[in-house]
Design a binder for these strands. Sequence first.
DNA 1: GACTTAGCCAAACAGTTGTTTCAAACAGAC
DNA 2: GTCTGTTTGAAACAACTGTTTGGCTAAGTC
Lengths: 224, 224
Amino acid sequence: MATRGDRRTRQRLLGAASELFAATGFHGAKVRDIARRAGANLAAANYHFGSKEALYLEVLRTHFAEIRARLSAEARLPDKAALARMSRAQLEALARMRLQTMLDILVGPPPGIYGRLIQREMCDPSAALPHIVDEFIRPNLEEMRLVFRALYPSLTAAEVDRCSFSMVGQVMFYHVMRPAVLRFLGRDEYGRGFTRQLAEHIFDFSLGGMERLASRRRRVRRAS
Amino acid sequence: MATRGDRRTRQRLLGAASELFAATGFHGAKVRDIARRAGANLAAANYHFGSKEALYLEVLRTHFAEIRARLSAEARLPDKAALARMSRAQLEALARMRLQTMLDILVGPPPGIYGRLIQREMCDPSAALPHIVDEFIRPNLEEMRLVFRALYPSLTAAEVDRCSFSMVGQVMFYHVMRPAVLRFLGRDEYGRGFTRQLAEHIFDFSLGGMERLASRRRRVRRAS
DNA sequence: GACTTAGCCAAACAGTTGTTTCAAACAGAC
DNA sequence: GTCTGTTTGAAACAACTGTTTGGCTAAGTC
């Protein structure tokens, strides 16, 4: 083992690559810049990861494995039976908390690195896309399903899914369209209490939406 | 004027550049590929536009000027006075129609070029961002404002804006996150009647959301 | 001490990319 | 026809980029 570098070079490369890939994308981030930011030699990236693409995939796998672990640990959902016993107020509080977490991760502040990586992956999907969907998106949506189904039992499975997408969509909007929204609002960044105010709006808006769908379903019986 | 090309070379370059910039982004699209697809010489791009970046900006300005004209012509909104005289059902039909138009443009099928360009511009904003916001996003949102305000007069201006964002956000979600949603759903493309079904869901969901906000506002008086 | 191995570095390599150059081709004015 | 300004084409250019090479150091093994 060499002791030349004070920190593990591989780790520093991963960190630098994460930031640059998130900031400028796969094509925009240059191996030389990554190496420079990591305080490593140009050849180090290829030595440790084999190729630029392999480094990129490793960045994605590392980050989304980590955030999955974090979410599982921090915001563990009660099991289905416990969920069924919860009061309406408790369920709503649970949904509200998960919404706030999503906003914190995706919208910030600070602007999250996961959101940036996902956004770029949606522009130019790589081999890591299935991993991101399965490790990050699917578990989150499954848990939202459970909560929403407990809150509005009259909704069909497809309706619950669409409602989950509607709620996540509102959150993603402020992340993905940040430059446009900021210019539209005439600001240069989302303020301090912005996400909290946003959480309140999205929560109320979404609950109203689901309520309407649930009650409409109860009232009128429609074909498909 | 040369007649060598059967079509104006400049126009063909613009078309080819649009497709490639939308498909692979500014960095991903190569001038050589654009020229080849346009059936033009490599030097033609620089001759007609000066540089790759100028070509990119011209692509954006052209497209968003065109779509603005199209929207103004096709989906002209009644003026404020006429709007005030409309019945609730008429206003709702108006909102529903605009929603369907947004879905057609952004989600497709076919997957729209405007959505792709916007998405990439949000990843790496260029000098054309202000143009896009002012020519495409702002006019659309202003008109949604008018309709929503007429539908729910008790909402504040800030609330109406947030509701507009909530509705647009749901639409954008299916465009921006398309690869993830498709994988989540286990399909390889949105089906035929998908956007129509989506329009119905988003419309009901959003109306429920606004209703809840409006009625909550009427019932309880809250501090900020 | 001799040998092996992992980590790191400077340099070089081969391919690509945006841009420029300069001559040829062309249309229209005369 | 000649002349002029515009458009096109082939080639070259200079800079950049991902990757490879060969050698160096330091630690571990015998």
